[in-house]
């Protein structure tokens, strides 16, 4: 057995899913631009200038985010989809974890104006994209609500309390990340065994191309 293969197997033993599953979803592919705060999660820069995330760090952050979410009541978690491909993953995530899903256009004041119909007071927010969800970010800052966000290599991290570094533009990577997060939250709560899986596959979290959603 070659040393590369041994190293790969030892890494796979530590990861939540096999390395190939991560690679096939493209969760590690960043953008050409990077911001300083995301530099610690970057593994390397490819020849074409694309930043590649460290899979171990993605894995570790998903575990930590799940641990953080398990500290809150299911109804106190607000999962917001800020891009088209995050709609279905967010809906499926809330279906399994009991979190409140928000997949429509975010009306300003929903977290800060008590007179507004549909006013919410979540304990923690899980955001799919900080660029698309800038209104959610600013309202979470005003209301003093902890914010967990999926951040790409060029995503702004203002007011984010826990970064999950990953490719947040791809359909497959968002599906895999929400699937892993849902599974890990249930494991942390004790609703799933440490080796048990969700009854559905990551593909079931995937947004279909014909489905509508917020742009």
């Amino acid at each position: 057995m070659s040393s590369d293969e041994t190293e790969r197997q030892s890494i796979e033993g530590e990861l939540l899913v096999p390395q190939e599953t991560y690679m096939l979803s493209g969760i590690h592919i960043g953008t050409e631009a990077e911001i300083k705060a995301m530099r610690e999660f970057i593994y390397k820069v490819r020849n074409d200038g694309i930043h590649v995330f460290d899979l171990k760090k993605i894995d570790e952050r998903i575990r930590i985010a799940a641990r953080m979410l398990s500290h809150y009541e299911p109804g106190g978690i607000l999962a917001v989809a800020a891009s088209r491909f995050a709609v279905r993953p967010v809906q499926r995530f809330s279906q399994f974890t009991g979190a409140v899903a928000f997949v429509e256009r975010f009306t300003p004041g929903l977290l800060t104006n008590p007179n507004l119909p549909g006013y919410m007071e979540p304990q923690v927010i899980l955001l799919s994209n900080t660029e698309g969800g800038s209104q959610v970010v600013s309202e979470a800052a005003l209301a003093g609500i902890p914010l967990i966000a999926f951040c790409d290599s060029n995503s702004p991290i203002d007011y984010v309390d826990l970064i999950i570094p990953m490719n947040n533009r791809s359909r497959k990577s968002l599906a895999l990340a929400y699937w892993l997060l849902a599974r890990q939250v249930l494991r942390e709560r004790g609703q799933l065994g440490t080796q048990e899986d969700l009854p559905v596959k990551p593909e079931d979290f995937e947004m279909e191309s014909e489905e509508g959603g917020i742009e």
């Binding site: 985010a65 641990r67 953080m68 500290h71 005003l142 209301a143 609500i145 902890p146 309390d161 826990l162």
Partner: peptide, 19 residues
């Protein structure tokens, strides 16, 4: 407008962050 939350990793210490 600060924020407080339990440590994401250990969950036993309350972390405070200013705006």
């Amino acid at each position: 407008r600060g924020v407080s939350f339990l440590c994401p990793n250990c969950g036993s210490y309350t972390i405070w962050r200013c705006k």
